[in-house]
Computed example of a mutant assay.
Amino acid sequence: MNHQYDCAVVGGGIMGAATAIQLAKGGMRVLLCEAQQLGMGASGVNAGTLSLQIKRVALMPYALKGHAIWADAGEAVGFKESGGITLAFTQHEAQILEERMTARINAGAPIEMITGAHARELEPHLTERIVSASYCHADGYANSSLTGAYYRRKLADAGVHVLELTTVDEIEPSGDGITLRAGGSVHAARRALLATGAWTKEISARLGVPLPIRVRINTVSVTERMPKLAKNVIGHATGLLTLKQSTNGTVLIGGGWQGTGTPEVGRGQVVAETLTSNLRLAQYALPELVDARIVRCWTGFEANSPDFLPMAGRLPGWDNLFVLCCVRGGYTIGPYMGRLMGDYILGREPELPLFDPIRFVEKHEQASSRSH
Rank of each mutant, 00 (worst) to 15 (best):
Y331A: 02
E273D: 09
E224S: 12
E164I: 04
N320F: 12
L193P: 08
T299Y: 04
I69V: 11
L352A: 07
E264A: 15
E81C: 09
L207C: 05
S305I: 07
L252E: 04
I178E: 10
Y344F: 15
S277F: 02
M101P: 02
V209D: 04
H236W: 03
H92S: 11
G342R: 00
D176T: 14
G208E: 04
R267A: 06
R129D: 15
L321F: 09
A76F: 07
R129W: 08
E351Q: 11
T167Y: 10
Q37H: 13
L211R: 08
R359H: 08
G249N: 10
F322V: 02
A158E: 03
M341R: 11
G259S: 05
H137I: 06
A367Q: 15
Q22S: 15
A20G: 13
A88G: 02
V251R: 05
V220N: 03
I96E: 05
D176Y: 00
A182N: 06
V77N: 12
G239T: 00
I130V: 06
A192R: 10
S51W: 14
A158W: 09
D356S: 10
T276Q: 15
A47L: 00
T127E: 12
K65I: 08
A367S: 12
L279Q: 07
W70I: 08
M40K: 15
A133P: 04
G159V: 13
G261T: 06
K244C: 10
R216M: 00
L354F: 12
G12S: 09
A282L: 02
V222K: 05
I333L: 12
L352T: 12
H236L: 01
V323G: 13
Q245I: 03
V361E: 15
G254R: 01
V327W: 00
V251Q: 03
Q22Y: 04
Y141M: 01
A158P: 11
T179M: 07
L155I: 08
E288I: 02
Q37P: 01
P61S: 10
A58P: 03
R370T: 11
E365M: 07
G184S: 04
I96T: 09
G255P: 05
A367E: 14
M60Y: 00
L165G: 00
A192L: 02
P124G: 01
F360S: 01
L321N: 10
E172T: 13
L229D: 05
G197A: 07
L32C: 11
T219K: 04
P353R: 05
I294Q: 07
G239H: 01
T332K: 09
G12P: 04
S145C: 08
G342H: 07
L240S: 14
I333S: 13
Q22R: 15
